[in-house]
Design a protein around this nucleic acid. Structure first.
Length: 596
RNA sequence: GGUCCCGUAGCUCAGCUGGAUAGAGCAACAGCCUUCUAAGCUGUGGGCCAUUGGUUCGAAUCCAAUCGGGGUCACCA
């Protein structure tokens, strides 16, 4: 039941009668009563004082009296200045709770029930270097948003487009050829993606040295950057790759293979997955025909030098090249082609979400605008899920310069910290060695994932490697711990939950009522999280719920409660709390243990 | 320079579809375990919500300007 709307109906009717207005329930805005005041919901009466021609207090008085008579659920009210605080009957809250307890996976809609299919692209790695903390944010965000959309009954297609070709990959390949001495993941013991990344850094070092030497012979920096032998060789390699040169392709396949093996490990640790993989080596040709089409339609035009452009200056954007004068694609060409391909491949698709950093805001504005101009109606259903960069205290992370927080290292450290903390707390009794490994993984990743997802995606976030991620307070482990606590009580209760029936006229403790109210809000939190594509809303919601649970836990005995009706009610209360915590954390891709 | 985003406690973040005394966590200090897991709970201190002006009965929230930080404006991806 939508409580606000239910109350709004009563208020709307009464206000219309009292002051001769024509409000509808959705005009009536109710908010939760602040803790310092008595009541459940608050109506701000200022908007009505003009029509009432009375003071805010008198207006509130009139409305309060009227709704009290009209709706038996309302038991009393009080007025503070322009605020009408309304209290609802205890039995009402108990019955609300019964409906929550009676709903399996409360707040989560049935799979595929919305009939809406959404494609969500995320991860999109380059195959020349290992993943870092910035990629972690992308992966966790993408996976989490997909999970949240699923709770709304949408059919979510998770896709990953792998940038497996281009000059950056040739750089790694070239450096490996020159300096690698046949090194392999097996021979070096290095994870494949790290091995390839190592040569990407090697390339950059050697390249910089060459530039320095050239500058010393009197070249400008720009000249040196273009004329350095290494970059010329890399470009030649790219041409060979495009010409399908067997040896180049073989090397490319081998090294990319190493990277994929490495990525698979990292993805597995992160707990992310995909329904479909795209490779740029297959898609980079796409879009060329689209450009021809657009040329005929007059959307694009050919410049004197042979390049094909679009003029978006009327849209507040710039002139943009969509095909080079030599006929090769630019970045946006293949994005155009890929988007069109996808909507052909998935004809039911109603939305396309790209999880990409905010440094590409402009690019996506241009992309969507071009698609619109080409006449694709679905262009307005394309959305750039833009997220802020993860920055270090000294600024942006740069792979080439090695100033990155490596994803694998980060994960390893989190798991180690989880182990250390658990051991220090002496909570390892009764676990097998295997169970402990799982537990450390769950807690360590829980801390990392929550740390990243609790922040609004749009905002850039700061990570200081010197300050370790906390396990106390507003954190993943705090929520996991609370879940484990509940499970522990339920284990000890020995009660068959399905046999419990709830007494309607139970006297509610403040914290019990607060818990019910918070549980009720889960639906709204999920919905809002889904419409705004913002996992932080669920993350912060679950924290609030958990916080209230812990207060309740401290004030209200459960198993030791002597009154059986109250005891049973409290057991049900923690059952539903536990279920919401679990489903909410699932939306963040975080597991909750039964013991810790 | 054009354009977009951001600026809330020492630090990391909530709050932003306008509403009551701006909230958490961390850090600091003081309490609470013979009683359901102390990864917890309770309390104390800490704020010209960047600045100025405007709209409004009412502004952290909306608008404008200014200052500060960042992104972007490639025939790179």
């Amino acid at each position: 039941m939508n409580i606000e709307l239910f109350l709004a109906e009563t208020i709307s009717t009464q206000v219309n009668q009292l002051f001769d207005l024509t409000t509808v329930p959705t005009d009536i805005i109710l908010q939760k009563t602040k803790k310092e005041f008595e009541g459940d919901y608050t109506l701000v009466t200022f908007p009505f004082i003009k029509a009432a021609k009375l003071t805010p207090e008198k207006t509130g008085e009139l409305i309060g009296d009227a709704i009290l008579k009209a709706n038996p659920v309302i038991t009393k009210f009080n007025i503070v200045k322009g605020f009408l605080n309304v209290s609802l009957a205890n039995t009402f809250w108990v019955s609300e709770f019964k409906s929550i307890a009676g709903t399996k996976d409360y707040g989560v809609k049935q799979a595929l029930s919305s009939g809406k299919q959404i494609m969500l692209e995320y991860s999109s790695p380059n195959t020349n270097k290992p993943l870092h903390l910035g990629h972690i944010r992308n992966n966790l965000l993408g996976y989490s948003v997909a999970s949240i959309l699923k709770t709304q009954g949408h059919d979510v297609v998770k896709v990953n487009i792998i940038n497996d070709r281009g000059i950056h990959i040739c750089k790694s390949m070239l450096a490996w050829q020159l300096f690698g001495n046949g090194e392999t993941p097996q021979s070096s013991g290095l994870k494949g993606d790290h091995l390839v990344g190592k040569y990407y850094v090697e390339f950059d070092k050697a390249y910089k040295k060459e530039i320095q030497t050239l500058i010393e012979t009197g070249k400008t920096k720009e000249e040196a950057e273009k004329q350095a032998p290494l970059i010329i060789q890399a470009q030649e390699m790219l041409l060979k790759w495009e010409a399908n040169d067997t040896k180049t392709i073989d090397l490319w396949k081998t090294m990319n293979g190493w990277v994929y093996e490495g990525f698979d490990v990292t993805y597995k640790m992160l707990g992310v997955d995909f329904d479909k993989l795209y490779y740029e080596s297959n898609t980079y040709i796409l879009g060329k025909s689209v450009v021809q089409e657009g040329l005929i339609k007059g959307v694009f035009y050919k410049k004197d030098n042979g390049s094909i452009c679009i003029d978006l200056t009327n849209e507040g954007l710039d002139e943009k090249v969509v095909l080079r004068s030599d006929g090769t694609s630019v970045y946006i060409t293949q994005d155009l082609g890929t988007a069109i391909e996808r909507f052909k491949e998935f004809p039911k698709l109603s939305q396309m979400i790209y999880t990409v950093g905010n440094e590409q805001d402009y690019h996506f504005k241009v992309l969507f605008k071009i698609l619109e101009k080409l006449g694709y109606a679905w262009a307005k259903e394309c959305f750039h899920l833009s997220y802020g960069m993860v920055e270090l205290p000294e600024g942006k992370m740069k792979s080439r310069e090695g100033t990155v927080v490596d994803a694998d290292e980060m994960i390893h450290e989190m798991v180690q910290t989880a182990r250390k903390t658990t051991e220090e707390l002496g909570k390892v009794d009764g676990f097998s060695e295997h169970e402990l490994q799982d537990l450390y993984m769950t807690i360590g990743m829980g801390a990392l994932k929550y740390f990243i997802l609790k922040v609004d995606p749009k905002k850039k976030m700061l990570f200081d490697p010197k300050e370790s991620i906390d396990f106390n307070g507003h954190t993943g482990p705090f929520i996991q711990y609370s879940h484990a606590r509940i499970q522990s009580i339920l284990r000890k209760s020995g009660i068959d939950i399905s046999a419990i029936s709830i007494n309607d006229d139970i006297e509610l403790h403040d914290k019990e009522k607060e818990l019910i109210k918070h549980q009720y809000d889960f639906v709204k939190a999920l919905e809002e999280s889904a419409t705004t594509l913002n996992p932080a809303i669920v993350a912060n919601y679950i924290y609030d719920l958990t916080k209230v649970f812990n207060q309740f836990y401290n004030e209200c005995p459960i198993l030791k409660e002597e009154n059986v009706a109250i005891k049973n009610f409290r057991i049900m209360l923690i059952v539903t709390t536990s279920s919401i915590i679990k489903n909410g954390m699932l939306c963040l891709g975080i597991d909750v243990p039964d013991r810790m």
